[in-house]
Design a protein around this nucleic acid. Structure first.
Lengths: 255, 255
DNA sequence: GTAATATGAACAGCATTAGTGTTCGATTAA
DNA sequence: TTAATCGAACACTAATGCTGTTCATATTAC
């Protein structure tokens, strides 16, 4: 069950996503609570690193990156990501050795792999932690630096680690999916790791929710033809899906 | 503040540590609560993997290892470990590069390093996760397998990772500290990593609460002379402390 | 510098949750 | 079978969490 507070927090983020900024009074009126309540919400959300307050209101905090911070992404399209995670998990065979990407979508996949018999190499500390309580998954961690906020593992150590091994499947996520540019990522370090992961895995399965469609990040990871399967949700236009099908090995809509 | 429930859980564990097993009625009487309350406690503690219930009572669950599982150790000597953690943190200079051991004592040290300006290489996923929310610590993870339950990082990958680097300080913990055998560890894999860590750090600081005194694990890590400092709590006998002082570089009693 | 506005600490009231005890039918061990 | 133990369900109480109000302080706009 979600508390009224959690729901309100999400609504605050939605309001901020409309226009980028909003005043305390405006949010209070729209959500039917006093300004003091909004201030307390903003205080918590700011501590989460999700937004920045200013005198009179708040604005979303993209920081130095080009996409919203993890807590925002996790709250966005949560249900679609859950469905995608479930579907991706169904494509994985017991006993396999898996590289699993970070990000909110990767975490959604992880939830459905907890009780499976697998060897998993997560590319994010957050995903690694999700498997900590699993007794059936054998967890191996690649060395590397942990990127603040995102908690992804990257750098030369991570790449070296992957290069020295071979995996059955790489479950990839991405910042953007465009018909022309393929899969792209904002963070260059993460992109370098992803490229390596593609090259050391037998097959790549890509999990992207529909909000990623027609978005292009800073660094290319791979073209749409590379993944053995692209799993997405029903939010994409049928035109986009049709075109994507023609230039990829297979598109699966999770629902 | 500790809730009455937490305190009672600890007392339940203490009772079990006396004799190994106890009946529900016995525990209820000694702690001044009804049997139903004890049953509910046991249910939770069993879910934590701390004990095993049987009809009429419960017994401590050491599983296949030679020391109690993490949740038990974390609840044992908690206050002493906190003090030790604080004291160890005071020995570390800003800007340093640190290897930080896992275990409940390592976690206690971590709590006091969260806001420091450091580069930290944790040897356990649990400790790594503790630093995830820190903005001031630069976190680097050694590759390796995660040992279930303990969540320590070990194996050839971890050792290779450490060998390729150099650190200012290694904050070491251990299963046992004996005057004759030095520092010892039950788990051979962890011990191998610890030995490597000692060799790649300028200096080693050892954090062991007094319950470790005169206990000998399966594998030797290093003699008492090696660490630049041994930090412990006031629970050790003055005789032990005196002897230890004579055969080590320095003993610090945290209080 | 002043007025208007925004902020947050402190308190109070309310709602919700957590913790414990009691009862009683179901389950287990001897 | 019998006696003991177990746990689901309910009730009561304490504790905690959440929201609104007030008011002194801080900030911004003029």
């Amino acid at each position: 069950m979600v508390s009224a507070k959690q729901r309100r927090h999400q609504q605050v983020l939605e309001i901020l996503q409309e226009t980028g900024t909003a005043t305390v009074g405006e949010m209070g009126t729209r959500l039917g609570v006093t300004e003091m309540t909004i201030r307390r919400d903003l205080e918590l959300l700011e501590a989460d690193g999700v937004l920045k307050r200013f005198h009179g209101g708040a604005k979303l905090d993209f920081g130095s990156s080009y996409e919203p911070p993890f807590p925002v992404r996790e709250k966005t399209n949560a249900e679609q990501k859950r469905l995608i995670g479930q579907r991706v998990a169904s494509l994985i065979d017991d006993g396999d050795t898996i590289i699993l990407d970070g990000g909110s979508t990767g975490l959604a996949v992880a939830e459905y792999l907890l009780d499976r018999q697998l060897t998993i190499c997560p590319l994010s500390l957050r995903v690694a932690w999700a498997f900590a309580r699993s007794t059936s998954v054998k967890l191996i961690i690649p060395g590397g630096s942990v990127r603040p906020g995102e908690l992804s593992l990257s750098g030369a150590d991570t790449i070296d680690y992957l290069r020295g091994r071979h995996f059955d499947t790489y479950v990839m996520t991405a910042s953007g999916l465009s018909l022309n540019e393929g899969f792209t990522e904002w963070n260059p370090e993460d992109a370098a790791v992803k490229k390596t992961a593609v090259s050391v895995a037998d097959k790549t399965i890509t999990a992207v929710d529909s909000s990623k469609f027609n978005r292009v990040g800073f660094v290319k990871i791979c073209p749409t033809q590379v993944p053995a399967a692209i799993v997405t949700d029903g939010g994409a236009t049928s035109e986009n899906l049709e075109k994507l099908r023609r230039q990829s090995q297979g598109v699966i809509v999770a629902e």
